[in-house]
Write a protein that binds this DNA or RNA. Sequence first.
DNA 1: AAGATGTAATTCACATGTTAATTACAAACA
DNA 2: TGTTTGTAATTAACATGTGAATTACATCTT
Lengths: 145, 145
Amino acid sequence: MLPPSTRRSLPMTLLRAREVIMAHFRPMLARHDITEQQWRVLRVLAETGPLEATELANRASILPPSLTRIIKALEERQLITRNRVKDDGRRALLAITPSGVTLIEDLAPERIAIYEAIEGRYGAEQYEQLLDMLESLIQSESSED
Amino acid sequence: MLPPSTRRSLPMTLLRAREVIMAHFRPMLARHDITEQQWRVLRVLAETGPLEATELANRASILPPSLTRIIKALEERQLITRNRVKDDGRRALLAITPSGVTLIEDLAPERIAIYEAIEGRYGAEQYEQLLDMLESLIQSESSED
DNA sequence: AAGATGTAATTCACATGTTAATTACAAACA
DNA sequence: TGTTTGTAATTAACATGTGAATTACATCTT
């Protein structure tokens, strides 16, 4: 078996695919002075409710050191709050604030429009199938110790 | 249309998919003290021959500022060389050195084995189909000004 | 030739990715 | 009680991602 050429390697192709998609969202994020990762963190908290850092890191696919920095930035902008968990001084519950919710809600319509445009160009069925296949890949490759 | 939940957003899913795949390669890269991006640069040069920085950046999907730093590091380790292009003082041809080729060749067998293992778990046909669908997505979304 | 415009590469500033080490705390246990 | 072990979060150090500004050349224009 030949090694996959760089142009058709799976990691590179996933990277490029992510890149062309994110390119559509970056102008919107820049206008609201928020990074892609900060937006992910806020959306997870908005969808799920208050979470501890470890769970939030998992759901937003952000590593703990990055999350520490992101939490600090979002807390300073008063988009999230942190409250100690009683009986365990290590943990803290992170929650989105009302102004954080407002920010997410302001972005939501444009977010939906961008997704619809992508689906329109790519095809809704293909789009769903691609997501299914990616989730299947993640399943087949995750943590088989 | 509902906004896609964070768990099934395309950018997040692409990110996670890339993550589970790259996890297989990281131990190998760490053993050889090379980063993922440095490995990409070397592979592109090994496959394609000498390139100028802009073309190399495109093929390796690395932004110019990152490539500047990576080139510097690889040059210091004598894994690549840079030669000015006559008649244009801005450009330079970047080429992999023999020891760079040796490094790539040392990694190649394990690289192939990892890909084969992934294909085996996921299914060879699915694997090819996924690549096709991703390339199609990249096509449908790239630069339609 | 001199200035205006365009292009390749770099630099800057800041955010995140990544691994290893460390801190702060909790829980188990002698 | 004091020590060990385990866990959550942070910090440290370095590499890369990202957008804006800058530098170094080329090329075009007059």
